[in-house]
């Protein structure tokens, strides 16, 4: 039987994520990929504002903290100065799909050679469970107490679909981490995304469906089931764009 080893790219700092939150799984996948692709020694993380704001404490590489939504712009600045380093952003849905939408669209449009890990948990985690642009129709949050779109507003924004319509990006995929087979697929997609950057092909984005048991008001197990039962049909998994 193979030994279980701690990923070298993850520090020993105790993580602050809530028990059962899948941010932890996604961190591990990214760290494993960086290690397997041998880019552990030249990676630069751009952290967002959201629950993963202090992700730089957990990844054993240089890290820079962006203002809310601005990680793609900060990553652009870093990458243009260090074009041979691997630069990646790790962003939530409030960060990437709401306040930072302009930066999100234009980093893809310029086809910056950076990678984005987009954690879609359909809610604002850090600020206590308010509605996100990715919140499902009918989903109750602290600012949609009667369910989203109770007054006929529109439903969630589909980032992977939207970004894949832009001419620029090299690779756009949506994956999920609600069970083991999907976690494996998620890792493959993340690996591909970084490989595209290593090959100088341009922008790559992996949207990862993730849980927020705390603000969804569910046990971690129920939260995983909620992803499967409610998110998968709204946010279909798959590769949306792939440069050959």
């Amino acid at each position: 039987m193979p030994n279980f080893n701690k990923t070298k790219m993850i520090t020993d700092v105790t993580m602050h994520y809530c028990p059962g939150c899948t941010h932890g799984i996604i961190h591990r996948l990214v760290a494993e990929v960086l290690e397997e692709l041998n880019i552990n020694d030249n990676a630069i993380l751009v952290a967002p504002v959201g629950c993963s704001v202090i992700a730089y404490n957990y990844f054993k590489c240089d890290g820079i903290e962006a203002a809310h939504g601005r990680a793609p712009a900060v990553a652009t600045g870093v990458k243009r100065v260090h074009p041979n380093k691997v630069v990646f952003t790790y962003q939530g849905d409030g960060d990437l799909a709401s306040i930072g939408m302009a930066e999100t669209v234009h980093v893809a449009s310029r086809n910056e050679n950076v990678t984005t890990i987009f954690v879609n948990n359909a809610i604002y985690g850090m600020t206590g469970g308010q509605m996100a642009p990715t919140t499902l129709v009918g989903q109750v949050t602290t600012t949609s107490p009667y369910g989203r779109a109770s007054k006929n507003e529109s439903g969630p924004i589909h980032i992977a679909e939207m970004i894949s319509t832009i001419q620029g990006p090299a690779y756009v995929a949506r994956v999920s981490v609600h069970d083991v087979p999907n976690i494996k697929k998620a890792k493959e997609a993340i690996k591909k995304a970084f490989q595209y950057q290593l090959d100088g092909k341009g922008y790559s984005l992996v949207e990862v469906l993730s849980t927020c048991p705390t603000n969804w008001g569910m046990s971690p197990v129920d939260a995983l089931k909620w992803v499967k039962d409610n998110m998968l049909n709204v946010f279909p998994l798959g590769v949306y764009k792939e440069e050959k």
């Binding site: 630069i44 751009v46 820079i64 962006a66 203002a67 601005r70 712009a73 900060v74 990553a75 652009t76 600045g77 870093v78 990458k79 243009r80 100065v81 260090h82 302009a102 930066e103 669209v105 234009h106 310029r110």
Partner: peptide, 25 residues
């Protein structure tokens, strides 16, 4: 390095990234 950014918000945050990366910007 020259980028015409999508907005002044983006421009200053690109400056933030480049400054953090050690460049005169």
């Amino acid at each position: 390095v020259f980028v015409q950014s999508e907005s002044e918000v983006a421009a200053i945050n690109m400056v933030f990234g480049a400054a953090g990366a050690g460049a005169r910007v």
